[in-house]
């Protein structure tokens, strides 16, 4: 399956990801610099902040909601933590907008 990462400057990169992988892992293992993932996906750092407008995503958990208060760039209603979203086959082609800053 594919996911598309969109940089704030408008450029796009399509990467191949595996089902079950998180969006954060799909990004860091493909050299997408706009996602840092400092805590390795343990929901403790908020450096995997992304903006996604897509109803295929699972709902926000209370922990994710709380940690999103600490993102470096503005939190919007599209804000999610990339490490908290495990990719499923239905998410093929998902478009993920990267923030300007993660720290």
């Amino acid at each position: 399956m594919d996911i598309v990462f969109l940089s704030p400057d408008g450029s796009e990169r399509r990467v191949v990801a595996r089902e079950g992988m998180s969006i954060m892992a799909a990004a860091t293992s493909n050299g997408i610099g706009g996602i840092v993932g400092e805590c390795g996906g343990n929901a403790m750092c908020a450096t995997c902040h992304i903006y996604v407008d897509d109803d295929r995503l699972p709902p926000l958990s209370p922990e994710e909601d709380e940690l999103l208060e600490g993102t470096a760039d503005e939190r919007t209603e599209k804000s999610r933590l990339g490490c908290q979203i495990a990719l499923t086959a239905e998410m093929d082609g998902l478009r993920v907008l990267l923030p300007e800053h993660q720290i």
């Binding site: 954060m24 860091t28 293992s29 050299g31 840092v36 993932g37 400092e38 805590c39 390795g40 996906g41």
Partner: peptide
């Protein structure tokens, strides 16, 4: 990317 290291 050192993400995933277990130093912490």
């Amino acid at each position: 990317s050192a993400s995933g290291h277990v130093g912490f």
